[in-house]
Amino acid sequence: MIAREWKCRVPEVHSKGFTDYLYETGIKDSSATPGFLGAQIFRRSFDDKVELTLITYWDKLESIEAFAGNDISVARLYPEDAVYQLEPDLSVQHYEVIERQFITEHRE
């Protein structure tokens, strides 16, 4: 399994709108690509901005290439990103997932 990590920053005022937009673009397009296994979005606030980290999970690098194009290290951006005053990372990181255990119930 491969994890693909992309980060961006948006002004706090655009956080909710951009997160919704991210679901409608990046998540929707990723999940429609064969080999997509799942996604997570992380959020953290600092000063007057929010940093969002999108991690998508894939079965193999070729599946990521089908989504991202030949150079999978380049971020896939969308035309309306500027509306949210997006400060995107222009590159992405890829990691081999070596542990993927999640606890699905609360243990006391």
Rank of each mutant, 00 (worst) to 15 (best):
F18H: 04
D20R: 11
V50Y: 00
Q40I: 07
S73G: 03
T53H: 02
F67V: 13
E99H: 15
L37N: 05
P79M: 01
L90E: 06
A75L: 02
K49S: 13
E96M: 11
E24R: 14
Y57V: 00
A32N: 11
Q85Y: 09
F36D: 01
R76D: 02
R44E: 11
A68P: 13
R9P: 06
D89N: 12
F46M: 11
E51G: 07
R9H: 08
S73A: 08
I2G: 09
I64T: 10
K16A: 14
H106A: 14
K28Q: 05
A68N: 15
Y84R: 14
G38R: 05
I2Q: 12
E105Y: 13
P11A: 10
L37G: 03
P88R: 00
L86S: 12
T33N: 02
I55L: 06
F46K: 09
T56I: 07
G38V: 08
P88L: 03
V13L: 03
S63A: 13
S15V: 08
I103L: 07
T104I: 07
F36Y: 12
R76P: 00
D48E: 04
A3F: 00
I55H: 06
M1K: 11
E96N: 15
F42R: 06
P88S: 01
D59I: 12
E62G: 15
W58C: 02
L52N: 02
D29E: 12
P11L: 05
W58T: 03
L54N: 06
E80R: 07
K7H: 09
T104S: 06
V92H: 07
H106M: 14
R4Y: 13
H106V: 15
R76V: 11
L52V: 01
T104L: 11
E80M: 08
Q93M: 07
A32T: 02
D81R: 05
D20K: 10
Q85P: 12
I98G: 11
A66K: 13
Y84E: 14
I55N: 07
K28L: 04
T56A: 05
L54C: 11
E5W: 04
M1S: 08
I72S: 01
Y23S: 01
P88E: 00
